[in-house]
């Protein structure tokens, strides 16, 4: 969180959903920043608030029941939350693009893929339809789909190919920030490998910043420079990928790692995190993780732990575990 020119700087963001049973604190006092060209992995379980944060950046939090109650989202120095709907519309798909999880439902089934890409180009650029279609074919080629298939309908493509089309649409207007929400979760492993390979390649070709929302730490290890771990609406750990994987600081991060069966060694039993995700309408006091935390002390239930920098660039929201690691360096 240096003071360099940041592409995205989220400060103290809170997003709530008001439902019958109470207020869901989907995102609580979230701070996050991203430098140009950086790849950020955004990790957490279902309900941690990853997607809500992404929707917040896009200005797409469904209202009602959702509402951004607090904070700033500075994008290239300007607060997105202060933009009008019309301004947001031109930013969405233009400077900030998003890829959704399910490629099957994010394409319109009755329009050919080249037209779907061209539509995006036409919306954000001052070009003729012919130029837009030309651009669409270029984009398809970029993501590894032959020009001959430009006139095909989405159902004529397989799942992996559809996700390529979705990526082509997202990149059609040269966005400076790409948000990918679980882009490979719906795909098979070998197809996922193809798509990840493609995204690697694209990173080399175009300098777009990426926020990769995922629950798969393996994908993060492969794709991202930095990682933010989210738990119950808050970022609990934020670190360069190497530091996070080599010495995770937060007990929750540690628990996440322990929950994944290791391919390289045999373990009889997995070391699990006890209990369940807290009810988002009724979060525990203090550190939201303390009821499940093996290291919790009394203070954890009272004070909200601040983010502490335990080594350069490595922030952990846990005063108990944050410290010992400084000299342990495991």
């Amino acid at each position: 969180m240096e003071d360099k020119k940041l592409l995205l700087d989220i400060q103290d963001l809170s997003i709530h959903y008001v439902v019958e049973s109470g207020t869901v604190h989907a995102v609580e006092h979230l701070n996050l920043s991203l430098a140009p060209g950086e790849n950020l992995g955004f990790v957490g379980e279902t309900g941690a608030g990853k997607t809500t944060t992404a929707l917040g950046i896009m200005g797409l939090v469904p209202n009602p029941p959702g509402k951004v109650v607090n904070g700033k989202i500075l994008f290239e120095g300007e607060d997105l939350l202060k933009k009008t709907e019309e301004q947001m519309r031109s930013i969405r798909g233009g400077k900030i693009a998003m890829i959704f999880q399910d490629p099957m439902t994010s394409l319109n089934p009755v329009i050919t893929v080249d037209k779907q890409i061209a539509e995006m180009v036409l919306l954000h650029n001052n070009v003729t339809e012919q130029q837009a279609l030309e651009r669409a074919e270029e984009m398809l080629e970029l993501v590894g789909i032959k020009r001959e298939r430009a006139r095909d309908f989405p159902h004529q493509f397989s799942g992996g190919m559809k996700q390529r089309v979705v990526i082509a649409i997202a990149l059609a207007c040269n966005p400076t920030l790409l948000i990918a929400d679980e882009p490979t979760t719906a795909l098979d492993v070998t197809i996922q490998a193809q798509v990840l390979e493609l995204m690697h390649e694209l990173r080399r070709k175009i300098n777009t910043s990426l926020i990769m929302i995922t629950h798969d730490l393996g994908i993060v290890a492969e794709m991202c420079d930095k990682v933010a771990i989210m738990y119950a609406g808050k970022v609990v750990e934020y670190a360069p990928t190497e530091a996070l994987f080599n010495h995770p600081g937060h007990p929750y991060t540690e628990g996440l790692f322990n929950s994944i069966p290791d391919l390289d060694s045999d373990e009889e039993e997995l070391k699990v995190i006890q209990g369940l995700m807290p009810d988002p309408t009724n979060l525990p006091s203090g550190c939201t993780f303390h009821p499940r935390c093996p290291y919790a002390v009394e203070a954890c239930s009272k004070d909200v732990p601040p983010m502490v920098e335990i080594e350069p660039g490595h922030f952990v929201a846990c005063p108990v575990r944050g410290k010992p690691y400084l000299h342990l360096g495991k």
Binding site: V189, G218, A221, T241, N246, L263
Partner: peptide, 8 residues
């Protein structure tokens, strides 16, 4: 094809 949750 499995992405390993280990750095490097």
């Amino acid at each position: 094809a499995i992405p390993l949750p280990k750095f490097g």
